[in-house]
Simulated assay, not measured.
Amino acid sequence: MSTTERDRVPWSPSLGGPRRRRRTAAALGLCAALTLTCAGTVLAVRSFTHGGYLASGDPATGSYTEEAADGDAAAGALLSGPYTERPAPPRVTTRTAAGGEAESVGDAAPATPPAKTADLPVSRPLEATPAAVSPAVGPLFSPGGDGDADHHCTASVVHSPAGDLLVTAAHCVYDRGFRTNLVFAPGYHDGVLPYGVWVPTRIDVDPRWADGHDDAHDVAFVRVRRPHGSGSGAQRIEELTGAERIRFAPPAGLPTRTVGYPDDRETPVGCQNTTTALPGQLRFDCAGFPNGTSGGPLLTGIDPDTGLGTVTGVIGGLDGGGDDATSYSSWFGPDIAELYRRATAERV
């Protein structure tokens, strides 16, 4: 099936929507309705009702090439809302390659990774607090016909040869089909879009996620572009925002900062702890990562001068990403490394 051949249907609550961070996972395990009463307490579970669309793409390969009109329409819908493009200066950073090696922008000679990294003491208490805005991290929006353009997930810019790549959770972009109305807003805060908006050209997930939502493969790579008529169409996102490095087969126990955009906040939250290993997963214990933080990066080795680090995971995986106290990430092992290689391959 062609990646542009589509069986488009309106996104609706009956389709389930992307799996959200489970703030009430323990209580919901006792109940089985969208509005529930458990032990005398009413729990209202918010459905995902952003009025977007689904495309079949190619589930056999886990890939989807988005039509330009869909991305432009999504960007236009977002920009018609209460958001302001207020350009910030481009970041002067070092572009870094998968695995921790680096190369300078415009320089073929290899460079070393940052010589110094920020100390990451464990947060006390273990609870997310307001975090500084990073140009390479931002929320994912899915504006639709219902006028609801709230952000629902988080993504980050990671280095790629073409300088156009994001990483997020697969459940943020694929659930019974690929989302066709995604918009990424790097460095977003308080209604301001300092680095503009970006829309997908291609989305890649592991076929095992597309086939059965395998928690070990809840990772997606998204190649992005400027919408037509917005800024320079030839400009690469990495040249504006900088990019996180990406590390495959990361060990557990690394000092880690996790960042995400709650869907009821206009700025990110973050927390620091070390990770622990589970089969096919990394575990990160810290409270305060609610709905909207799925896809947020787990960062190590943060450069204090640029704020950029190395992505070793994204919130997702086991139990839809976790519960009130714990977040998970699918382990960035050989399968995720192969997905990265497929996503960054040049095509004619």
Rank of each mutant, 00 (worst) to 15 (best):
D190M: 10
D190L: 13
G191R: 14
G191L: 13
V192M: 10
L193P: 04
Y195S: 05
Y195W: 05
V199N: 03
V199D: 03
V199R: 04
P200Y: 04
T201N: 05
R202K: 15
D204R: 03
V205H: 00
V205R: 01
D206K: 07
P207C: 07
R208L: 14
R208I: 04
W209C: 03
W209D: 00
D211G: 10
H213N: 11
D214P: 09
D214S: 12
D215A: 15
V219E: 02
V219Q: 03
V219W: 06
A220F: 00
A220K: 01
R223W: 02
R223K: 07
R223M: 04
V224P: 00
R225K: 13
R226P: 04
R226G: 05
R226M: 07
P227G: 06
P227H: 09
G229I: 08
G229C: 09
G231H: 08
G231P: 07
A234S: 15
A234E: 13
A234T: 15
Q235D: 13
R236N: 08
R236A: 11
I237K: 00
E238A: 14
E239P: 00
T241W: 00
T241R: 01
G242Y: 02
A243Y: 02
R245Q: 10
R245L: 06
R245V: 03
R245Y: 04
R247V: 08
R247A: 12
F248A: 04
P250T: 10
P250K: 05
P251K: 14
P251G: 10
P251M: 09
A252E: 09
A252C: 14
L254Y: 12
L254V: 10
P255L: 15
P255D: 15
P255F: 06
T256C: 11
T256H: 07
R257I: 07
T258V: 15
V259G: 03
Y261D: 05
P262T: 08
D263W: 11
D263C: 11
D264H: 13
E266D: 13
T267H: 11
T267W: 08
G270L: 02
G270S: 14
G270V: 02
G270Y: 02
C271D: 01
Q272W: 00
N273C: 02
T275V: 01
T276S: 10
A277Q: 07
L278T: 05
L278C: 07
L278V: 05
G280P: 14
Q281W: 03
Q281T: 04
L282T: 03
